[in-house]
Design a protein around this nucleic acid. Structure first.
Lengths: 189, 189
DNA sequence: GATTTTGCCTAATCGATTTAGGAAACTTAG
DNA sequence: CTAAGTTTCCTAAATCGATTAGGCAAAATC
């Protein structure tokens, strides 16, 4: 019997592609097995469970996203860095909706600790170096940026802004301008 | 054979309670049937499918949340209204995590149109009456507020802010102060 | 080339989803 | 009050996803 050449990495990769095509919630062990023309049971030599597969897809997405953000951030500072960061984030979600959804999966603490989550937090802090904030304002600002980017992208993907003027791109730019102004003028009256 | 007295509303209500207890993704037709001591098939006289059940829970959550926000907003304006709105939103998510997750379910357009989604948008606009914004800034601001509240609450529920100082409440207050200042000083430099 | 390890298979169980069809309980009209 | 109609719930059964046990053949190791 010819072997299909499965590995954990290939499964995660194919699972990520499947997620982008049909949605992360529709990623299922049998569906992935069909892609490799093997039986469902065969995948269980490479993954522990369906949850495990999803977690591996999530880790892959987090790494990819972190790589993109890192590349976008290279050599930039201030508003330039803020915009690059935000756009890298948003573009990834638009190009890879299934992976983006995967990246939101709640991981157990050990897995999360070994993930690219730390790089994300680190890069967000790096953006703020271009602004004149001291602790604890800097941490508050990190959290605010994370919230607004994640929230905006989620709502946009859910179709929240698609059916009315002004278009989503304008709002995105407006928000970035607004955040930049807010951070530059801190502390305010 | 004694009847259990099922109705669509009771199922949605019980489904919402179940969601808060075990998580929205764990709400299943058999699990709900067990609560009423009936067989799984019996529920299908009241719901069209499992998806339909979840949509009904989502609609219930959206209504409840809109009611709460409306109550919180009554008689308030300016920063007071902003804070009340934000806290109503966040408190609901903390008290009813399953329902909050349900409220994020993507509904098909017709269902969404018949939902309390419109009330939410309307109330968000109402908050901004206390600030001096004109279109299209007002719409941009509505979207920004929605994004940040949703994003913050999602990340907080996912445990994103729980393992480091400063605590989440401080950041929440900081963000509200910051948003208020930003909206009051609009347009800026 | 013999042995150990690994990859994939067959077979089977369990739980969730859903439909078909029947019987008992409510409702309503005569 | 009873007969007809409707609704509610049941039994039974098919399908599909998740998962485990145990076997055989292919790779890798010696």
């Amino acid at each position: 019997m010819a072997r299909a050449g499965l590995t954990t990495e290939r499964l995660a990769q194919a699972g990520a592609e499947l997620a982008d095509e049909v949605g992360f919630d529709k990623v299922t062990v049998p569906a992935l097995a069909r892609r490799f023309d093997v039986t469902t049971a065969s995948l269980y030599s490479h993954i522990k469970s369906s949850q495990d597969l999803k977690a591996k897809i999530a880790l892959l997405a987090l790494e990819e996203l972190a790589d993109r953000v890192a590349a976008a951030l290279a050599g930039r500072a201030g508003k330039d860095a803020l915009t690059a960061f935000a756009n890298a984030y948003r573009d990834y979600a638009r190009e890879h909706p299934g992976r983006y959804a995967a990246a939101q999966l709640r991981l157990d603490p050990e897995t999360a600790a070994a993930s690219a989550g730390g790089r994300h937090a680190q890069m967000t802090r790096a953006i703020l170096r271009g602004y004149d904030l001291t602790e604890p304002d800097r941490t508050h600002a990190v959290r605010m940026l994370g919230s607004i980017f994640h929230g905006y992208v989620s709502l946009e993907m859910a179709g929240g802004f698609s059916h009315s003027a002004p278009d989503s791109q304008e709002t995105w730019s407006w928000i970035l301008d607004s955040l930049d102004a807010q951070l530059r003028n801190w502390p305010r009256s």
